[in-house]
Write a protein that binds this DNA or RNA. Structure first.
Lengths: 341, 341
DNA sequence: CTCCATTCGGCAAACGTTTGCAACAGATTA
DNA sequence: TAATCTGTTGCAAACGTTTGCCGAATGGAG
């Protein structure tokens, strides 16, 4: 049914190897022959069968992209950027969703392994050991997690978290809450560490809550716990949780930022749509997707396993305001923040 | 490097065909032999090479999913549902983004054709002819578009639009606006037609604005035009535009729903997060994704090319309220709506 | 004890490519 | 004139599977 290399060969009166070379090594075939072959190929609508090609070359020209939750607004921009970037380099992308389940994650990597030239693992929930194990079966690039010896693209959330905490301290807040994310998340640990250190250095208190699922509902559900701490400012693991918290506080007639300030992380598309607009740390997810594709595709060439770190920046909107004491020393710390709007 | 069927055969002292049958036709091999083979396969970490299998069986166990814009919040739930559903049936999913470009769309279908058992086309922008052409190269299921003779899954937005308009009429609104979507969209035509007919039947006025890009900015930009019509209620092509409009009205101190009621379509995740919460027509996108996968996978068996229509339902939240006249006959029409929250 | 049916496993061809090797022509060099 | 080189093409073996066909072994039935 489908038109193969053999049909083209027959129609243009050459051997199949010549047809093959016309596509995969054009310089080895007489220009005249080549154009004749190309013409008949075009006319017959021939398209090389990538699976067959992969079988012999070992290169599939496919990559896998595994994320925890496609519907989490953090991921789509990354997926889109990675796919577009990969396609520009003539690669197709398998996308798979683990539903935050490390077992599914490992299964998926193995199932995809034979069909791809490499896999992008976004915010994996597996253990380091497991990932290193899998790495022996298929080239891997990890996004948003640092594992020694493994190529990775990470967003420097620590930097953003420090900016966020300094911003809150500058506003006069003395007691902060970190609304933690999911267990096993590298990002979560980074934020906690950076926020904790920054707060401690300024003599402020930081209460850590969690772990939580990184979803709106969890943020909302944590409202009571947050209020119970007596803190006046909250840094959330991500915008989804921050938005959930925002809603729950609103429902309890707690003014934001009047009584409590809230900062999210990610700058998902809708963090600017809620009211008050959310102060948040912008992650360059699209750039991360592209960088990860590049790393994966270069990995074959040299064995280099670099780690790329991308900057994150605080975006100050309307969900943060002066703390209870509004000290005169409000500008003690320098706020190295990008201000939008 | 990779462990093949041959390695397993050697290690377990049988012929490769026996190993093959152990996986693809277990009933043809002695239970004892089978378990021995399975054991060594397990031990060696053998995984059948799908590409090689595809080459001979003609079935790749892959499907393609082509959408206009991954980052548009309408799509991720559909992608997620389709992928999960497909994987449950042991299929992997290529996801590709056309950036709303019909040329990319056609290219993509052809490039993917050999590597998949079928393709899901979401809201394609190509002409009917082109799609029918491509259909000869690879099984296709179209989502959100009706093309005679082609298997399709459509959401009955007409139904939702009628519900929305009746809801507004019941609230006493006499002059409505339909904030139109992109040119060439089948969905857009359906909504316009259904809304127009319903309004006309009730003797109310419906002003159509557009076409617009289906994005937040377009909704915001249309605020002036909407107010200029003097209408007291708006039905928007999608939630994104409705939310944009909401924000713009807020900026102009126009009360929603006090002075103007707004209804969206899609029920994207964030329509419940904006304030006022958006009254909208819920599209069963996840169900559509699953149904499309099912249709595609069954297509091989029989040649049936059914068309599945999924119900849409109005979700009444807080962006709609009584119109200027609040007539006593407010419940003239039966509001067959699902009420959430 | 023979015959037949049944079950099991091996053999080899195929799927659509790529690619090392060899053949051949014509051109260049010695 | 012979030898060498260069450019172009064909040949055939792979890649990792599946599957139709055939033979071997087993076990009743007659």
């Amino acid at each position: 049914m489908a038109v193969t290399i053999r049909d083209v060969a027959r129609a243009s009166g050459v051997h199949i190897s010549t047809v093959s070379r016309t596509f995969s090594a054009p310089h080895l075939v007489n220009p005249e022959t080549r154009s004749r072959v190309l013409a008949t190929a075009e006319q017959l609508g021939y398209r090389p069968n990538r699976a067959a090609r992969a079988l012999i070359t070992g290169r599939t020209h496919n990559i896998g992209l595994i994320v925890a939750d496609i519907a989490n607004p953090f991921f789509p921009p990354l997926i889109k950027a990675a796919e577009t970037h990969a396609r520009r380099r003539d690669y197709h992308v398998f996308v798979a969703d683990t539903d935050e389940d490390p077992i599914v994650e490992a299964d998926l990597v193995q199932a995809l392994a034979k069909q791809v030239d490499g896999i992008l693992l976004c915010s994996p929930r597996m253990s380091d050991d497991q990932i290193e194990q899998l790495r022996r079966e298929v080239p891997l690039v990890v996004i948003n997690r640092m594992i020694t010896g493994l190529p990775a693209v990470v967003m420097d959330v620590g930097h953003g978290a420090r900016q966020a905490v300094r911003h809150l301290l500058d506003l006069g807040h003395q007691h902060l809450v970190y609304l933690g994310g999911p267990r096993g998340s590298w990002t979560n640990r980074e934020i906690r560490r950076a926020a904790g250190a920054t707060a401690r250095a300024a003599g402020a208190e930081l209460t850590v809550l969690g772990p939580h699922q990184p979803v709106e509902e969890a943020g909302a559900a944590a409202a009571e716990a947050v209020l119970a701490t007596g803190a006046t400012a909250v840094l959330a693991y991500n915008d989804l949780m921050a938005i959930g918290l925002l809603q729950a506080l609103q429902d309890r007639d707690v003014a934001v930022p009047g009584q409590v300030s809230v900062v999210g992380i990610d700058d998902i598309a809708y963090s600017g749509l809620v009211r008050p607009k959310l102060t948040t740390v912008a992650n360059p997810t699209a750039a991360a997707g592209r960088a990860a594709v590049d790393m994966l595709l270069q990995q074959g060439d040299d064995g280099a396993t670099g780690q790329v770190t991308l900057r994150t920046d605080l975006i100050i909107r309307n969900s943060t305001g002066p703390g209870p004491y509004t000290p005169a020393a409000a500008t003690t710390h320098e706020v190295a923040a990008t201000v939008k709007e």
